[in-house]
Design a protein around this nucleic acid. Structure first.
Lengths: 254, 254
DNA sequence: GATACACCTTCACGCAACGTCAATGTCAAT
DNA sequence: ATTGACATTGACGTTGCGTGAAGGTGTATC
């Protein structure tokens, strides 16, 4: 079976432009070119394209894919393991961003005050990280480990540790809440534990905790459909349940 | 206090190119231009740049940032909530990628066979999602909800559910393993539970489970430093501990 | 044989957010 | 007057294609 660009494109679900581009960068050349200059692909190319699309779906860059599919001896597994690392880093970075966004939202919604210094905390942390990644080796070689460690040192570890703690706490909240929700009792022990965990989680973000603000935030979880959707994702009604639990926990039930 | 590009740049940690670019796109114009054409920034511009960098760190596009910082009446909080949604989506997408990469790694390392259909499962899922997002409304209006739901329907829900289950399982493995590690006994009840959870987790990825392959994979966790680093992240020695537990669990301890 | 129409080709610009030259002008100190 | 650090405005490169434009080809129909 032979295919022109459009036939192959619709078969694999990619545009003709994509196929021409893959030809251009040498990642997928047609089996032959006919007398009119048309690209003609065969079965081997179909297979190869599937391979390419598979790795592409994994988020691998076309450059890397080229290495994988052109050199049969190339260690695809090692490349994937490395790629996995990058994905994990990206994920952590995004989690950090989400935490910071949450913080900012809580700030504006809760009328909390956050110093500029604090505002830039995550930002600076990232810069230190990147700096370390890029120049760490060179600087270490030039000035010795002590200097570098002193400048990055403890704050680095502390914020990293804090970050780990806070994500762990967030997971605990979700899990506890999920179990508590099944009991159906927002005043029950589990629900109150979830509320308490939620408070602890909040305290990573707020400089000053107040029952009023906590209760207000809980109400917002119900009022704002985007938050509701988040909490109700697993079990519809969870956001309301959490609000009730927190209202009881804070004694703000009117 | 007045600043030239480089002074402001080093103060805020951005390149001069970035400042020129921000001027070019009208997001941060200098307070004035001196007689030689130099850009001169004042305190107001410093503040504004900090604002810009703050939102940039949250991953907001410069276009969006422009709206936020130029229109004081613009609802920054709403923009952030929306942005948060996007981040969550990205995170989920990355988690899906990681799961697929894991699957592929397990496949190549474990010499398992995965049908092409299965290979493209995550890939297709994403395409359905995107298709739905882009054309869902139009198609629904044209052909009615039934047609669309039928085509996306159950498979969609099943894979989503499966994905949730498998990530939950992975978390359980990590948690159980962490607790078991403290007991120091790979033959103990907790360690064996961790091994069992690990097997269940594996079975989401492997079509056929074998004790040999399971034990072999466990050994790889120790031999490949990248896997070792992953498992040892919280507690050094965890990878070896898991291998021992799995070797006992599978009865493959030689 | 002419026409229509779908399909193919090769340029080549556009997207985000800058990095990185290149060519040239300016400021302060020696 | 020279040097060296700093400033300026272009303008191309990056990634993975989307989206025309301008023009040739294949085939069915009138």
């Amino acid at each position: 079976m032979e295919y022109t660009v459009q036939k192959l494109g619709s078969l694999a679900g990619v545009s003709t432009r994509t196929l021409r581009y893959y030809d251009e960068i040498g990642i997928l050349k047609p089996a032959r070119i006919n007398s009119s200059g048309y690209r003609i692909y065969g079965q081997a190319e179909v297979d190869r394209l599937q391979q390419i699309l598979f790795y592409r779906e994994l988020g691998v860059s076309l450059d890397r894919i080229k290495e994988i599919v052109t050199a049969p001896s190339f260690d695809g597994a090692a490349a994937l393991i490395e790629h996995r690392e990058k994905l994990l880093e990206k994920k952590e970075q995004i989690e950090l961003l989400i935490a910071n966004v949450d913080k900012t939202i809580a700030l504006t919604e809760g009328r909390m005050n956050m110093s500029n210094k604090e505002k830039f905390e995550g930002f600076k942390k990232k810069m230190i990280d990147e700096n370390e990644e890029k120049y760490g080796k060179e600087i270490r070689e030039k000035y010795g480990d002590d200097t570098v460690d002193k400048s990055n040192g403890k704050l680095q570890n502390m914020t990293k540790k804090q970050h780990d703690e806070v994500t762990a706490l967030a997971d605990q909240v979700t899990e506890t809440l999920a179990v508590a929700f099944k009991t159906g009792d927002p005043a029950g022990e589990l629900a109150q534990k979830a509320a308490d965990l939620h408070k602890q989680w909040l305290c990573y973000y707020w400089n000053e905790y107040s029952k009023e603000a906590h209760a207000g935030l809980a109400q917002m979880y119900v009022d704002d459909e985007r938050f509701t959707a988040y909490y109700d994702k697993a079990q519809p009604g969870t956001a309301e349940f959490l609000r009730d639990a927190i209202h009881i926990y804070t004694g703000m039930k009117k």
